[in-house]
Protein backbone atom coordinates (compact mmCIF):
# COMPACT_ATOMS: atom_id res chain seq x y z
CA UNK A 1 0.00 0.00 0.00
CA UNK A 2 2.85 2.38 0.79
CA UNK A 3 3.89 2.28 -2.85
CA UNK A 4 0.54 3.73 -3.80
CA UNK A 5 0.59 6.30 -1.05
CA UNK A 6 3.95 7.51 -2.25
CA UNK A 7 2.63 7.74 -5.77
CA UNK A 8 -0.08 10.01 -4.38
CA UNK A 9 2.35 12.87 -3.89
CA UNK A 10 2.52 13.93 -7.51
CA UNK A 11 3.43 17.36 -8.83
CA UNK A 12 -0.19 17.94 -9.87
CA UNK A 13 -1.45 17.28 -6.38
CA UNK A 14 1.17 19.53 -4.79
CA UNK A 15 0.19 22.24 -7.26
CA UNK A 16 -3.43 21.75 -6.28
CA UNK A 17 -2.54 22.14 -2.62
CA UNK A 18 -0.54 25.30 -3.29
CA UNK A 19 -3.41 26.76 -5.33
CA UNK A 20 -5.95 25.95 -2.62
CA UNK A 21 -3.81 27.48 0.13
CA UNK A 22 -3.17 30.57 -1.98
CA UNK A 23 -6.90 30.92 -2.60
CA UNK A 24 -7.67 30.53 1.10
CA UNK A 25 -5.15 33.24 1.97
CA UNK A 26 -6.36 35.58 -0.75
CA UNK A 27 -10.01 35.45 0.26
CA UNK A 28 -9.27 35.47 4.01
CA UNK A 29 -9.72 39.24 4.10
CA UNK A 30 -13.41 38.88 3.32
CA UNK A 31 -15.22 36.63 5.81
CA UNK A 32 -18.07 35.98 3.39
CA UNK A 33 -15.81 34.74 0.59
CA UNK A 34 -13.72 32.83 3.06
CA UNK A 35 -16.86 31.08 4.35
CA UNK A 36 -17.98 30.21 0.82
CA UNK A 37 -14.53 28.78 0.16
CA UNK A 38 -14.65 26.77 3.38
CA UNK A 39 -17.98 25.20 2.43
CA UNK A 40 -16.62 24.55 -1.06
CA UNK A 41 -13.67 22.69 0.45
CA UNK A 42 -16.02 20.47 2.49
CA UNK A 43 -18.02 19.92 -0.71
CA UNK A 44 -14.86 18.82 -2.52
CA UNK A 45 -14.21 16.31 0.25
CA UNK A 46 -17.76 14.98 0.04
CA UNK A 47 -17.70 14.87 -3.75
CA UNK A 48 -14.46 12.89 -3.65
CA UNK A 49 -16.12 10.31 -1.40
CA UNK A 50 -19.28 10.16 -3.50
CA UNK A 51 -17.08 9.76 -6.57
CA UNK A 52 -15.55 6.60 -5.11
CA UNK A 53 -19.03 5.10 -4.73
CA UNK A 54 -20.83 6.50 -7.75
CA UNK A 55 -18.01 7.23 -10.14
CA UNK A 56 -15.60 4.38 -9.64
CA UNK A 57 -17.88 1.64 -8.32
CA UNK A 58 -21.11 2.66 -10.05
CA UNK A 59 -23.28 2.67 -6.92
CA UNK A 60 -25.65 5.64 -6.72
CA UNK A 61 -25.83 6.05 -2.94
CA UNK A 62 -28.42 8.63 -1.95
CA UNK A 63 -27.84 7.96 1.77
CA UNK A 64 -24.48 9.75 1.65
CA UNK A 65 -25.62 12.89 3.47
CA UNK A 66 -27.33 10.75 6.10
CA UNK A 67 -24.01 9.08 6.90
CA UNK A 68 -22.41 12.53 7.13
CA UNK A 69 -25.21 13.50 9.51
CA UNK A 70 -24.57 10.54 11.81
CA UNK A 71 -20.94 11.56 12.10
CA UNK A 72 -21.85 15.25 12.57
CA UNK A 73 -24.36 14.57 15.35
CA UNK A 74 -21.97 12.05 16.90
CA UNK A 75 -19.08 14.49 16.96
CA UNK A 76 -21.21 17.35 18.24
CA UNK A 77 -22.71 15.15 20.95
CA UNK A 78 -19.34 13.91 22.16
CA UNK A 79 -17.86 17.42 22.15
CA UNK A 80 -20.77 19.35 23.65
CA UNK A 81 -22.18 16.78 26.08
CA UNK A 82 -19.20 14.67 27.05
CA UNK A 83 -16.62 17.43 26.76
CA UNK A 84 -14.36 15.43 24.48
CA UNK A 85 -11.75 17.10 22.34
CA UNK A 86 -12.85 17.41 18.70
CA UNK A 87 -9.83 15.37 17.70
CA UNK A 88 -10.95 12.47 19.82
CA UNK A 89 -14.67 12.83 19.10
CA UNK A 90 -14.32 13.15 15.33
CA UNK A 91 -12.48 9.85 14.68
CA UNK A 92 -14.86 7.96 16.96
CA UNK A 93 -17.92 9.45 15.28
CA UNK A 94 -16.48 8.96 11.79
CA UNK A 95 -15.66 5.33 12.50
CA UNK A 96 -19.16 4.81 13.86
CA UNK A 97 -20.65 6.43 10.77
CA UNK A 98 -18.45 4.28 8.51
CA UNK A 99 -19.62 1.11 10.23
CA UNK A 100 -23.23 2.25 9.77
CA UNK A 101 -22.32 3.08 6.18
CA UNK A 102 -21.17 -0.49 5.58
CA UNK A 103 -24.37 -1.86 7.11
CA UNK A 104 -26.48 0.45 4.97
CA UNK A 105 -24.46 -0.62 1.95
CA UNK A 106 -25.47 -4.25 2.45
CA UNK A 107 -28.48 -3.99 0.09
CA UNK A 108 -25.98 -3.37 -2.72
CA UNK A 109 -25.00 -7.02 -2.50
CA UNK A 110 -28.43 -8.01 -3.78
CA UNK A 111 -29.69 -4.94 -5.58
CA UNK A 112 -28.31 -3.32 -8.69
CA UNK A 113 -28.74 -0.01 -10.44
CA UNK A 114 -32.09 1.62 -9.84
CA UNK A 115 -33.12 -0.82 -7.11
CA UNK A 116 -30.03 -0.04 -5.08
CA UNK A 117 -30.48 3.71 -5.61
CA UNK A 118 -34.08 3.34 -4.43
CA UNK A 119 -33.07 1.39 -1.34
CA UNK A 120 -30.49 4.07 -0.52
CA UNK A 121 -33.18 6.71 -0.94
CA UNK A 122 -35.39 4.83 1.50
CA UNK A 123 -32.50 4.58 3.96
CA UNK A 124 -31.76 8.29 3.59
CA UNK A 125 -35.40 9.09 4.29
CA UNK A 126 -35.38 6.89 7.38
CA UNK A 127 -32.19 8.57 8.60
CA UNK A 128 -33.74 12.00 8.00
CA UNK A 129 -36.84 10.99 9.95
CA UNK A 130 -34.52 9.67 12.67
CA UNK A 131 -32.68 13.00 12.89
CA UNK A 132 -36.00 14.76 13.45
CA UNK A 133 -37.40 12.10 15.75
CA UNK A 134 -34.55 11.62 18.27
CA UNK A 135 -34.91 15.08 19.72
CA UNK A 136 -32.77 14.22 22.73
CA UNK A 137 -29.74 13.70 20.54
CA UNK A 138 -30.38 16.05 17.65
CA UNK A 139 -32.72 18.72 19.02
CA UNK A 140 -35.09 17.80 16.22
CA UNK A 141 -36.03 20.26 13.49
CA UNK A 142 -34.69 23.19 15.50
CA UNK A 143 -31.19 21.83 15.18
CA UNK A 144 -28.16 22.29 17.40
CA UNK A 145 -26.59 25.74 17.34
CA UNK A 146 -23.47 27.32 18.85
CA UNK A 147 -21.35 24.28 18.10
CA UNK A 148 -17.78 25.12 19.13
CA UNK A 149 -15.07 24.94 16.46
CA UNK A 150 -12.36 22.27 16.77
CA UNK A 151 -9.81 22.91 19.49
CA UNK A 152 -6.12 23.08 18.78
CA UNK A 153 -4.85 20.34 21.11
CA UNK A 154 -2.80 21.40 24.16
CA UNK A 155 -3.18 25.11 23.47
CA UNK A 156 -6.59 25.93 24.85
CA UNK A 157 -7.52 27.87 21.73
CA UNK A 158 -9.71 26.86 18.84
CA UNK A 159 -9.44 26.91 15.10
CA UNK A 160 -10.96 30.09 13.74
CA UNK A 161 -10.68 32.45 10.81
CA UNK A 162 -7.97 31.62 8.32
CA UNK A 163 -6.73 28.79 10.51
CA UNK A 164 -10.02 26.90 10.14
CA UNK A 165 -10.10 27.70 6.41
CA UNK A 166 -6.66 26.22 6.00
CA UNK A 167 -7.66 23.17 8.02
CA UNK A 168 -10.58 22.59 5.62
CA UNK A 169 -8.34 23.21 2.63
CA UNK A 170 -5.91 20.64 3.89
CA UNK A 171 -8.69 18.13 4.60
CA UNK A 172 -10.04 18.55 1.07
CA UNK A 173 -6.59 18.10 -0.39
CA UNK A 174 -5.96 15.04 1.76
CA UNK A 175 -9.20 13.49 0.50
CA UNK A 176 -8.07 14.07 -3.08
CA UNK A 177 -4.67 12.57 -2.41
CA UNK A 178 -6.38 9.52 -0.92
CA UNK A 179 -8.72 9.26 -3.93
CA UNK A 180 -5.73 9.51 -6.25
CA UNK A 181 -3.95 6.74 -4.37
CA UNK A 182 -7.06 4.53 -4.42
CA UNK A 183 -7.71 5.17 -8.11
CA UNK A 184 -4.18 4.05 -8.93
CA UNK A 185 -4.15 1.04 -6.62
CA UNK A 186 -5.36 -2.51 -7.28
CA UNK A 187 -8.33 -1.64 -5.07
CA UNK A 188 -9.31 1.13 -7.47
CA UNK A 189 -9.01 -1.22 -10.44
CA UNK A 190 -11.19 -3.76 -8.70
CA UNK A 191 -13.84 -1.11 -8.11
CA UNK A 192 -13.86 -0.17 -11.79
CA UNK A 193 -14.09 -3.85 -12.72
CA UNK A 194 -17.11 -4.25 -10.41
CA UNK A 195 -18.71 -1.17 -11.97
CA UNK A 196 -18.21 -2.50 -15.47
CA UNK A 197 -19.28 -6.14 -15.00
CA UNK A 198 -19.76 -7.87 -11.66
CA UNK A 199 -19.98 -11.37 -13.08
CA UNK A 200 -16.80 -10.98 -15.09
CA UNK A 201 -15.06 -9.38 -12.10
CA UNK A 202 -15.84 -12.47 -10.02
CA UNK A 203 -14.73 -14.76 -12.83
CA UNK A 204 -11.28 -13.18 -12.79
CA UNK A 205 -10.96 -13.58 -9.05
CA UNK A 206 -12.26 -10.30 -7.64
CA UNK A 207 -14.17 -10.60 -4.36
CA UNK A 208 -17.14 -8.39 -5.22
CA UNK A 209 -18.77 -8.51 -1.77
CA UNK A 210 -15.59 -7.65 0.12
CA UNK A 211 -14.64 -4.81 -2.20
CA UNK A 212 -18.14 -3.33 -2.13
CA UNK A 213 -18.13 -3.38 1.68
CA UNK A 214 -14.68 -1.80 1.64
CA UNK A 215 -15.72 1.00 -0.67
CA UNK A 216 -18.75 1.72 1.49
CA UNK A 217 -16.45 1.91 4.50
CA UNK A 218 -13.98 4.23 2.79
CA UNK A 219 -16.70 6.34 1.16
CA UNK A 220 -18.42 6.73 4.52
CA UNK A 221 -15.14 7.92 6.04
CA UNK A 222 -15.19 10.80 3.56
CA UNK A 223 -18.85 11.49 4.36
CA UNK A 224 -18.16 11.35 8.09
CA UNK A 225 -15.10 13.61 8.14
CA UNK A 226 -17.01 16.09 6.00
CA UNK A 227 -20.00 15.94 8.34
CA UNK A 228 -17.94 16.58 11.48
CA UNK A 229 -16.10 19.47 9.84
CA UNK A 230 -19.30 20.92 8.40
CA UNK A 231 -21.14 21.03 11.73
CA UNK A 232 -18.22 22.63 13.56
CA UNK A 233 -17.45 25.07 10.74
CA UNK A 234 -20.99 26.33 10.33
CA UNK A 235 -21.58 26.05 14.08
CA UNK A 236 -25.03 24.61 13.40
CA UNK A 237 -26.44 21.20 12.57
CA UNK A 238 -30.02 20.42 11.59
CA UNK A 239 -31.71 17.54 9.76
CA UNK A 240 -31.98 19.78 6.68
CA UNK A 241 -28.20 19.84 6.33
CA UNK A 242 -28.12 16.07 5.92
CA UNK A 243 -31.24 15.25 3.93
CA UNK A 244 -31.97 13.70 0.56
CA UNK A 245 -31.46 17.02 -1.21
CA UNK A 246 -27.95 17.25 0.26
CA UNK A 247 -27.20 13.76 -1.03
CA UNK A 248 -28.52 14.74 -4.44
CA UNK A 249 -26.47 17.95 -4.42
CA UNK A 250 -23.30 15.97 -3.76
CA UNK A 251 -24.25 13.47 -6.45
CA UNK A 252 -24.80 16.41 -8.79
CA UNK A 253 -21.35 17.86 -8.07
CA UNK A 254 -19.81 14.52 -9.01
CA UNK A 255 -21.96 13.99 -12.10
CA UNK A 256 -21.73 17.59 -13.25
CA UNK A 257 -17.96 17.49 -13.07
CA UNK A 258 -17.54 13.99 -14.43
CA UNK A 259 -18.13 10.64 -12.75
CA UNK A 260 -15.16 8.38 -12.43
CA UNK A 261 -12.63 11.06 -13.31
CA UNK A 262 -10.24 12.34 -10.68
CA UNK A 263 -10.67 16.07 -11.27
CA UNK A 264 -14.34 16.03 -12.33
CA UNK A 265 -15.86 16.15 -8.84
CA UNK A 266 -13.43 18.92 -7.86
CA UNK A 267 -14.59 20.98 -10.82
CA UNK A 268 -18.22 20.16 -10.00
CA UNK A 269 -17.84 21.21 -6.35
CA UNK A 270 -15.97 24.40 -7.25
CA UNK A 271 -18.74 25.45 -9.62
CA UNK A 272 -21.80 24.28 -7.70
CA UNK A 273 -20.98 24.68 -4.00
CA UNK A 274 -20.92 28.53 -4.16
CA UNK A 275 -24.27 28.66 -6.03
CA UNK A 276 -26.53 28.82 -2.93
CA UNK A 277 -24.45 31.69 -1.54
CA UNK A 278 -24.74 33.70 -4.73
CA UNK A 279 -28.52 33.35 -4.63
CA UNK A 280 -28.75 34.72 -1.07
CA UNK A 281 -32.42 35.40 -0.26
CA UNK A 282 -33.60 33.52 -3.36
CA UNK A 283 -32.52 30.37 -1.63
CA UNK A 284 -35.28 28.12 -2.97
CA UNK A 285 -34.09 28.93 -6.49
CA UNK A 286 -31.18 26.68 -5.64
CA UNK A 287 -33.51 23.68 -5.82
CA UNK A 288 -34.73 24.73 -9.25
CA UNK A 289 -31.21 25.32 -10.55
CA UNK A 290 -29.88 22.07 -9.13
CA UNK A 291 -32.87 20.19 -10.51
CA UNK A 292 -32.36 21.71 -13.95
CA UNK A 293 -28.66 20.85 -13.81
CA UNK A 294 -29.42 17.25 -12.84
CA UNK A 295 -31.60 16.95 -15.92
CA UNK A 296 -29.04 18.70 -18.09
CA UNK A 297 -26.25 16.38 -16.96
CA UNK A 298 -28.29 13.23 -17.56
CA UNK A 299 -29.66 14.34 -20.91
CA UNK A 300 -26.91 16.42 -22.46
CA UNK A 301 -23.64 15.58 -20.76
CA UNK A 302 -23.43 12.11 -19.20
CA UNK A 303 -19.66 12.51 -18.96
CA UNK A 304 -19.89 15.79 -17.04
CA UNK A 305 -18.03 19.04 -17.75
CA UNK A 306 -14.56 17.70 -17.05
CA UNK A 307 -15.28 14.24 -18.44
CA UNK A 308 -16.52 15.68 -21.73
CA UNK A 309 -13.52 17.98 -21.92
CA UNK A 310 -11.23 15.05 -21.20
CA UNK A 311 -12.82 12.97 -23.94
CA UNK A 312 -12.41 15.86 -26.35
CA UNK A 313 -8.81 16.56 -25.44
CA UNK A 314 -7.94 12.86 -25.63
CA UNK A 315 -8.53 13.01 -29.34
CA UNK A 316 -5.74 15.52 -29.72
CA UNK A 317 -2.63 13.45 -30.33
CA UNK A 318 -0.17 15.87 -28.75
CA UNK A 319 -1.76 15.50 -25.34
CA UNK A 320 -2.49 11.83 -25.69
CA UNK A 321 0.63 10.57 -24.02
CA UNK A 322 0.20 12.77 -20.99
CA UNK A 323 -3.44 11.92 -20.54
CA UNK A 324 -3.10 8.22 -21.11
CA UNK A 325 -1.65 8.13 -17.62
CA UNK A 326 -4.91 9.39 -16.21
CA UNK A 327 -7.49 6.74 -15.83
CA UNK A 328 -11.19 7.18 -15.79
CA UNK A 329 -14.39 6.48 -17.51
CA UNK A 330 -18.07 6.90 -17.21
CA UNK A 331 -19.89 4.66 -14.77
CA UNK A 332 -22.24 2.00 -15.87
CA UNK A 333 -25.48 3.39 -14.53
CA UNK A 334 -27.43 3.74 -17.70
CA UNK A 335 -26.95 7.44 -18.06
CA UNK A 336 -24.51 6.75 -20.84
CA UNK A 337 -25.88 6.45 -24.29
CA UNK A 338 -24.33 3.57 -26.07
CA UNK A 339 -24.35 3.10 -29.78
Amino acid sequence: MRRYLRSAITPQLLLLLAAAIALAVVVSGNRFFAFVLGITMISILWAAGMNLLTGYTGLVSLAFAGIAGISAYGTVGLVMRCGWSFWLAMPVAVLGAAVVGVLLGLPSLRLKGFYFALSSLVIQTVLSLGFVYFIGLTNGDTGISQIPPPDIPLTGVSFHGIGFDLLLTFAAWLSLAATWAIAHSPFGRRLVAIREDEVLAEAIGIDVIRNKMLVFFVGSLYAGVGGALYATYVGFASPRSFDLLSSLSIWLMVAFGGRGTFMGPVVGALILAPVPFMLQQYDTLKDVIYGALIIAVIVLMPGGVYGTLLAYVRRLPSLKRYLSKQRGGVPNDGSVRRS
Partner: peptide, 22 residues
Protein backbone atom coordinates in the same frame (compact mmCIF):
# COMPACT_ATOMS: atom_id res chain seq x y z
CA UNK B 1 -30.70 2.81 -23.46
CA UNK B 2 -30.13 -0.36 -21.46
CA UNK B 3 -30.34 0.20 -17.68
CA UNK B 4 -32.28 3.36 -18.39
CA UNK B 5 -34.28 3.05 -15.17
CA UNK B 6 -31.52 4.57 -13.06
CA UNK B 7 -31.10 7.47 -15.50
CA UNK B 8 -34.86 8.05 -15.43
CA UNK B 9 -34.89 7.79 -11.65
CA UNK B 10 -32.29 10.52 -11.19
CA UNK B 11 -33.91 12.54 -13.98
CA UNK B 12 -37.29 12.53 -12.24
CA UNK B 13 -35.61 13.38 -8.94
CA UNK B 14 -34.36 16.48 -10.79
CA UNK B 15 -37.90 17.23 -11.98
CA UNK B 16 -39.09 16.81 -8.39
CA UNK B 17 -36.57 19.36 -7.20
CA UNK B 18 -37.57 21.88 -9.87
CA UNK B 19 -41.29 21.57 -9.19
CA UNK B 20 -40.91 21.67 -5.41
CA UNK B 21 -38.69 24.75 -5.74
CA UNK B 22 -41.21 26.48 -7.98
Amino acid sequence: VPDRNIAYFVLTLGVTQILSGI
